[in-house]
Design a protein around this nucleic acid. Structure first.
Length: 562
RNA sequence: AGCCUCAUAGUGUAAUGGUAACACCCCGGAUUUUGAUUCCGUUAUUCUAGGUUCGAGCCCUAGUGAGGCUACCA
């Protein structure tokens, strides 16, 4: 069971954890995945999820665990819908938080108590400056900040003001609680950061119980410490916050001392990862929802047909560093193709059908063809696919005037109906517009399961679907990512969502066995590309509907790259 | 401008101070009842300049480039 993808090398975070374990600093490892429920999870979050939950799994013998914690300290942006979607996505990715489900909002009283503690020790004060005044007084990158009037308040005055702030005596923006640290620090985060602000907003869990809410910098280290997190892993943009993180841990009455470690977030080529932009796409109706298959959200990838293990393998393969680079999306696609190729039973489908009439069918009527479910894995067995004198084949599998390297059907040429006979094209018809409308062919008797007879050149086997028993299915075909102009226009850059026009819905012909597959099955439609059909939401209609499918590769050859 | 962080093939990552490697991508070939898979092969890498050292991708200094920081967002 050795996984070749499992690198024996430790990344810098695993090294730190190994040291902490061997030095006896910690006897186990407790991590956490702490999303703010203000949107759906995307592939970037998957990296963090795989890291945090993966670490817990790796130290399962030490009773290590990973908490799922919702960092819901800003009621204006957070919703229960997001909480539920995040839980679903983490579960779908294959991780289990067990009983360790937490909400920052459950700690509101503790945060408040810590704030009072800081005030009492002279390390926090009330500031009645406006946001604008505060910004002006904070100074800038090269000049120190100047103190506001609140900095000179007595402990009693601060306590009184803070209590009144909590009681709702002030309007939003009228005052804040600040830490008293260092207005001259070269690290702007240390210039007396805001701890609490007033928000007369309805919180999705605590309702109207509070009108003051803690800031991330204040709340996060306390949450970690409260849950006895040993290693608090976050992305690079919080690097400058670490001194502040440590300051709160040192100056508040917390039960443990977690350590914050930063790593590079995931950037993918051609992919929009910004929550703000994803939200905009959803709100402006440019996509059908957070789970639109064109989006890099976990739910979008799920609908696109990406298997969860492939996403996990991807996260494993990209490694973990502090280097802020951009991973080629081809790496992700490789893992998906690789997984699908190994695990998917094959089915045949025809997206752009042309009818073939086999004129001498009665010479050797087959009834049904035995087709292997997987070309390299006999354990997957075979299936009987009904076949008759009329079959659909792909329009592009026939050429009236084929070039040198074309190995499929053309006038007088041979091709194999995969799993069945070799046929030879005897004639064809065109419609008024010059399109091929019908192909006539003859079977070569005795060629089922046998090599082509002497003198017959037959180098290809094509997909086909029996006209009499084949099923019409609605297939959504997703191409590779397109780049389109950034709808913002402001940044002059590119958004890399798919062009909405590239979302094609095609009525295709599929073999009956594919249509009857169980919900949630994955299959690779040969020749056509890779498809995954999740028919969980399949309405029991007369027609089977593949409402969730994806093509990763075009029908022949590789995509041009680089 | 100040502070913090980072820099290895096209991309992502490896390499107790001791022969720079793996995967993806690309290209070529073989096999193939998927123009897939599989197999074989080709190209290509330590940002620059100094220093320490017998020896530097690794340590030191400076430079360059990239990212982050001046929300009552997280």
């Amino acid at each position: 069971m050795s996984d070749p993808k499992e690198s024996p090398k430790l990344d810098f975070i695993r090294e730190i954890i190994a040291e902490d374990l061997s030095s006896g600093k910690h006897s186990t490892t407790i991590t956490r995945f702490p999303p703010e429920p203000n949107g759906y999870l995307h592939i970037g979050h998957a990296k963090s999820i795989c890291l945090n939950f993966g670490l817990a799994l790796e130290h399962a013998g030490l009773a290590a665990k990973c908490h799922l914690r919702f960092d819901d300290t800003n009621p204006e942006k957070e919703e229960t819908e997001y909480v539920e979607s995040i839980k679903e996505d983490v579960k779908w990715l294959g991780f289990d938080w067990g009983t360790d489900l937490y909400f920052a909002s459950d700690y509101f009283q503790f945060f408040y108590d810590c704030a009072v503690h800081l005030i009492k020790s002279g390390k926090a004060y009330m500031d009645r400056d406006s946001a604008e005044e505060m910004r002006a007084k904070r100074g800038n990158l090269t000049t120190a900040g100047t103190p506001s009037a609140g900095r000179d308040l007595t402990v009693e005055e601060n306590l009184d003001l803070f209590a009144r702030m909590k009681a709702g005596e002030f309007k939003e923006g009228e005052c804040v609680l600040r830490a008293r640290i260092d207005l001259a620090s070269s690290n702007m985060n240390m210039r007396d950061p805001v701890l609490y602000r007033i928000m007369h907003a309805h919180h999705h869990r605590t309702g109207d119980a509070w009108c003051i809410y803690p800031m991330y910098d204040f709340a996060h280290p306390l949450e970690d410490a409260l849950e006895h997190i040993t290693h608090s892993l976050c992305t690079l943009e919080f690097e400058n916050h670490r001194p502040l993180y440590d300051w709160f841990i040192e100056n508040c009455p917390v039960p443990s001392k977690p350590r914050q470690i930063e790593f590079a977030r995931l950037n993918l080529t051609y992919t929009v990862m910004s929550k703000r932009k994803l939200l905009q796409l959803v709100q402006e109706g440019l996509v059908s929802g957070w789970d639109d298959p064109r989006l890099p959200t976990i739910s979008g990838l799920r609908r696109r047909g990406y298997p969860a293990p492939a996403i996990r393998d991807f996260c494993k393969r990209i490694g973990l560093t502090k280097f802020n680079g951009t991973t080629d999306v081809a790496l992700l696609e490789f893992e998906v193709r690789d997984f699908l190729n190994r695990e998917s039973p094959r089915r045949m489908a025809v997206l752009d059908p042309v009818k073939v009439v086999i004129e001498n069918w009665s010479a050797e009527p087959l009834g049904s063809a035995e087709v292997p479910n997987h070309p390299q894995n006999p354990e997957m067995g075979e299936r009987a696919v009904p076949i008759g004198a009329e079959v659909w084949i792909e329009r592009e599998d026939f050429m009236e005037d084929p070039p040198k390297k074309f190995y499929r059907l053309g006038p007088g040429r041979h091709v194999r109906l995969r799993g069945g006979h070799i046929i030879r094209c005897t004639s064809f018809e065109k419609d008024g517009e010059g399109n091929i409308s019908l192909i006539r062919a003859e079977i070569l008797p005795g060629t089922v399961g046998k090599d082509a007879p002497e003198g017959v050149e037959c180098r290809a086997a094509i997909h086909w679907v029996d006209v009499a028993t084949g099923v019409d299915a609605e297939v959504r075909l997703y191409d590779r990512l397109f780049t389109v102009e950034d709808p913002d226009g402001a940044e002059g850059g590119f958004l890399s969502v798919m062009n909405p026009d590239s979302l094609k819905i095609i009525t295709a012909k599929v073999e009956p066995a594919a249509a009857n597959a169980d919900a949630g099955f994955a299959c690779q439609f040969e020749r056509v590309g890779y498809f995954v059909a999740d028919i969980k939401d399949h309405q029991p209609a007369s027609k089977p509907v593949f409402n969730r499918s994806v093509a990763l590769k075009d029908s022949w050859g590789k995509q041009s790259g680089r």
